[in-house]
Design a protein around this nucleic acid. Structure first.
Lengths: 349, 349
DNA sequence: TGTTGGTATGGTAGCGCTACCATATATGGT
DNA sequence: ACCATATATGGTAGCGCTACCATACCAACA
């Protein structure tokens, strides 16, 4: 009767099998089918086998929207990154996608374009979907964003940096320390008049600049006039332009720490074009250690950051937390490593 | 009565206002509230104002999951790209995110890792969510994938290439023609022994190689022994390695067409390191015209492709189609442009 | 023997929204 | 006056799933 009824009526859905169809075929109730899918342990082995056979024979796949509505929890993990063009985040995302692997979770990716306001807007959209977890970039959320994260009722991971007072979990490293370390290396190599060029100048760039300042202050070699920054997005051509400007204003610099590798590559090209000897006339260091840095000629020194691992680890922590596993460490500092190459071998005596 | 009842019962949801709360406050039925949000034209202006005030005063935001369940249609637009690391797709995605702008749609991003089987798996997941539209990369879907796309009941856009027999809509260009064009340019510049290096060799790389072959065949200068490819993912270091290998096997080549710009950059670095004069001893051309190509020294010739536009346009077509607007052109060829620079200026006499 | 407690399954009632149809009122033509 | 048509709103019944509670059964205990 009911079956015939359904056949006669025009159904709204696309006619795909539902949990009720599976239940009918297996001779059990719908809730038992649900349990086979969500809590297999709560169903006897015999029944489970029956139900699984019915699922397979109908090709049943649960409807994620119905599931989310009924359980107030979707399989979506929201991820907000500030840029899709910056290859740093491409690596992070690759790690996340690899980490999520065959699990049932879906990544919902938002692009904040380095705007805290846009991040706030995205968080408002994401939290409505009752995500399983949220991963956000950096530690400088607006108060409203922070409140949303705290009240989202799901695990939250802040990535790319470490800092005090995490919302929940954190995976990153200290940009200040990394900036200070590469500048210390430049000092050790014998450079004395070390400039800084930086683009975008988001909070993490600012902290790298702080590291640069701290390192030079400690050596008594700080000089604010050779720090050159712009809020414009980073690019190779911008690196060329910034170095050109810098050299015209301060021709006596002997090294430059570039806020990231794009700029460093642009700076290197400018040196090649102007026949400036790297590393003897000018030392050049970048940040992030993109793959091309080792191939360039001369090869470029940089700070290796564990971008893929940040993505992989943060997603793993999020998924573990969602599944109720105890996350032992809530703040993970992945550190960094100096990749020292030809471009900072030291000034020609 | 009902209100008190709800207050006493433990509610499942997070206690956020629902459409019923808005309806009660505005003194209308729930369906009218729904219409104000979905079809404002069907509600009188007076009532609309009332309802909108109620929505604002409660801070009501619709639940996307309930909406998707009731309407058999989610606000998700599924996008499948083969790589997140390849900056080509970063640009495409940026175009898509810009295009989707303030619209209510959400991008659900899948990474197929250049595997048609993985693409099939992702499509199975995506179609379960009854997406508003689907955007896939390339035209070489498996038969099963193609069937899913045809039966998804939503607009579908294939991007990055054009070809016969679109599933629905298409935005791209001819990789064969682009490959043929840059090789013709090399011939015109006076190069005669033009090699090819290629990585990944996905279908689009194959078609660029075909263009290379066609162009050389027409000139009677084809030589299969100087075509060097690998299924390994493309990278700058791979470009260096491939060129090194190539030169050791065929030292007499006078130009090389690199399947993409990463390889071309690696090739250039290898030339710098080995003191090979570019463009006089060896012409070098890339593909895609990434921003750094113009900055390199010597600047590198490439084929400019409209990646951002492909993302922007494809998303616009998808959204227009979802909203029932007539999409005039279903297959858009965005073409390409040769970016001719120092690296292919011609062999030394 | 009755009680307790655990385990396996089912029934009911929603989750918050919209499709579909019904109803009420206005408009116009004959 | 009638009917046909259009416009504006409401009522009902789900969409497909799971939370919550009830029930049946069995074993173990006093």
């Amino acid at each position: 009767m009911r079956i015939a009824d359904r056949g006669n009526r025009k159904r709204r859905g696309a006619g795909r099998p539902t949990i009720a169809d599976v239940a009918r075929l297996a001779g059990v109730s719908a809730i038992t089918v649900s349990r086979v899918l969500r809590n297999p342990g709560k169903v006897s082995a015999e029944l489970r086998t029956h139900v699984e056979a019915a699922i397979r024979s109908l090709g049943y796949v649960p409807d994620p929207n119905a599931r989310a509505l009924a359980s107030s929890r979707s399989d979506v993990i929201g991820v907000i990154v500030p840029s899709l063009t910056n290859s740093v985040f491409a690596d992070v995302l690759r790690g996340m996608y690899d980490s999520i692997g065959g699990s049932p979770y879906q990544i919902q990716l938002g692009n904040s374009r380095y705007s805290p306001i846009e991040e706030e807007r995205l968080l408002a959209i994401f939290t409505r979907q009752r995500p399983s977890a949220l991963i956000v970039t950096g530690i400088d959320q607006t108060p409203a964003s922070r409140t949303m994260l705290e009240q989202a009722g799901c695990p939250v991971v802040q990535i790319m940096e470490t800092g005090p007072d995490p919302v929940d979990m954190m995976v990153g490293f200290s940009h200040r320390d990394a900036g200070a370390a590469i500048v210390s290396h430049l000092l050790q190599s014998g450079y004395r008049k070390i400039a800084f060029i930086g683009a975008r100048m988001d909070p993490r760039s600012q902290r790298r600049l702080q590291g640069y300042r701290d390192s030079l202050d400690a050596a008594g070699l700080a000089d604010p006039s050779i720090v050159m920054t712009t809020p414009a997005p980073s690019s190779v051509s911008l690196g060329r332009d910034l170095l050109r400007d810098l050299l015209s204003r301060a021709p006596d610099i002997d090294a430059v720490f570039c806020n990231n590798d794009d700029l460093a590559l642009g700076a290197l090209f400018e040196c090649q074009r102007s026949a400036i000897d790297v590393p003897r006339r000018l030392g050049v260091a970048g940040f992030n250690d993109l793959e091309m840095m080792a191939v360039a000629s001369p090869s470029l020194s940089s700070v290796r950051t564990y971008r893929y691992d940040m993505g992989y680890r943060s997603m793993k922590m999020a998924v573990d937390a969602v599944q109720g596993q105890d996350v032992e460490t809530r703040v993970v500092d992945l550190g960094f490593e100096l990749a020292i190459r030809e471009s900072t071998a030291g000034p020609g005596k």
